[in-house]
């Protein structure tokens, strides 16, 4: 049981009925290539399912992907449920097709960062490295 350096564990989740999973898969791969352990939940998850899975998996961050327009409801719902479960040490970020006006609203609701199409993967990975640390 040699102590290893704690590995960052993240979850990439697709909330709601949105079936666009290309972006989520690309992000999952970029995270893996950066040395993170990435739990992928697959499509069509409710906020409740995402939060429960994140707790069972003891992840440090949840990354939500939405291209179908329901982010204003789904992303804050995840943040809120984490609070209710006393698990708000888990950082939430997100990405997808999200209008600029909504980005500010989501941040105000507790989503730490939002990445829209065209964001280079390096930047997305770097943000995690700078803002998410494996829990002590």
């Amino acid at each position: 049981m040699k102590q290893q350096k704690r590995r960052v564990r993240v979850m990439v989740a697709k909330p709601g009925l949105d079936g666009h999973d290309r972006g989520a898969r690309i992000i999952a791969r970029a995270y893996r290539d950066a040395g993170f352990e990435v739990v992928y939940t697959g499509l069509h998850q409710t906020p409740e399912e995402i939060v429960e899975a994140a707790i069972q998996e003891d992840v440090d961050m949840i990354g939500l992907s939405s291209l179908a327009g329901a982010h204003n409801y789904l992303f804050p719902a995840v943040v809120q449920l984490l609070r209710e479960r006393g698990a708000d040490d888990i950082v939430v970020c997100g990405g997808g097709i999200i209008p600029e006006d909504d980005v500010e609203k989501l941040k105000a609701a507790g989503v730490k960062a939002v990445f829209t199409p065209g964001t280079p993967l390096d930047q997305i990975v770097k943000w995690v490295e700078e803002n998410v640390s494996p829990r002590s």
């Binding site: 590995r7 995270y31 040395g35 992928y40 697959g42 409740e48 399912e49 998996e57």
Partner: peptide
């Protein structure tokens, strides 16, 4: 991954219906 030390853990995708 032997290259990065990271991993994609995707088994859960098939089991998520039990997560609640």
């Amino acid at each position: 991954s032997p290259f990065s030390g990271g991993a994609i853990l995707g088994d859960r995708v098939r089991m998520q219906r039990h997560s609640m």
